[in-house]
């Protein structure tokens, strides 16, 4: 019996095909479970730094660059210093209406800072003025990030330590907008439905043509 005759044997082909399909599904599901456990174990080994959000990272980066300071836990205390913030001209390009709105909310809050630029490390806390700048900058960064993601640019997250977590999880391999990817599936379903409807219509037309010819 050669391979051509084996293919002609409908029952045998279908049996082999079904067995292979179901065994593949079963075995793969079993291995997918064990794989999940491996990934979970590896995720637990990730450094704590990777768990910060992009906005937190940018706030941290802003103070490192502009204030030469490291964010500290507010509960640890500190002496308020009013002269540590940037001048009005420095923060002007970054201010917007969001600052005014968030300023009202965060008037009574203060964030403690630890300066590492001078010869003696000093601990200070943020004033209302600095806090308003921080809230404005964070709002701008949050909006900028949303826009860049919408445009398919990933410049911010490329330099972000948190992006390694996203890449590791494998859930964000595509730089395209998820809404656009959703469209791909809908186009596929629409195209396949059109093919089926078109083919069915052609069969119907042919049958009708033959029926008319038979009657005539």
């Amino acid at each position: 019996m050669n391979i051509n005759k084996l293919i002609q044997n409908k029952k045998l082909f279908l049996v082999i095909f079904s067995v292979l399909t179901f065994s593949t599904i079963g075995l793969s599901t079993a291995y997918a479970d064990s794989d999940d456990n491996q990934m979970q174990a590896l995720q637990n080994q990730l450094p704590v730094q990777n768990t910060i959000s992009p906005v937190q990272y940018h706030i941290h980066n802003h103070f490192r660059l502009h204030h030469g300071a490291i964010l500290q836990n507010p509960s640890s205390g500190g002496t308020p210093l009013n002269n540590q913030g940037p001048t009005q001209s420095q923060i002007k390009p970054q201010t917007n209406s969001a600052i005014i709105a968030q300023n009202a909310v965060s008037n009574r809050n203060s964030i403690n800072l630890q300066s590492n630029t001078g010869p003696n490390a000093t601990t200070s806390s943020m004033t209302t003025y600095d806090n308003s700048v921080l809230s404005g900058v964070s709002t701008n960064i949050a909006h900028a990030e949303t826009e860049s993601e919408a445009n398919g640019e990933n410049g911010i997250t490329a330099n972000n330590p948190a992006s390694s977590e996203v890449a590791y999880n494998g859930n964000n391999q595509n730089t395209m907008n998820p809404a656009k990817l959703d469209l791909v599936l809908w186009i596929t379903i629409f195209a396949i439905t059109s093919i089926i409807v078109h083919s069915a219509w052609k069969v119907y037309k042919t049958r009708r043509k033959f029926a008319v010819k038979k009657t005539v």
Partner: peptide, 25 residues
């Protein structure tokens, strides 16, 4: 097709709309 099925199930975590469309086709 079987290899594709196998590949898809092993890397089910990375399922996205393109892969799903490919499976449908």
């Amino acid at each position: 097709f079987l290899l594709g099925l196998f590949h898809g199930y092993l890397l089910l975590r990375g399922l996205d709309y393109i892969s799903l469309s490919l499976v449908v086709v």
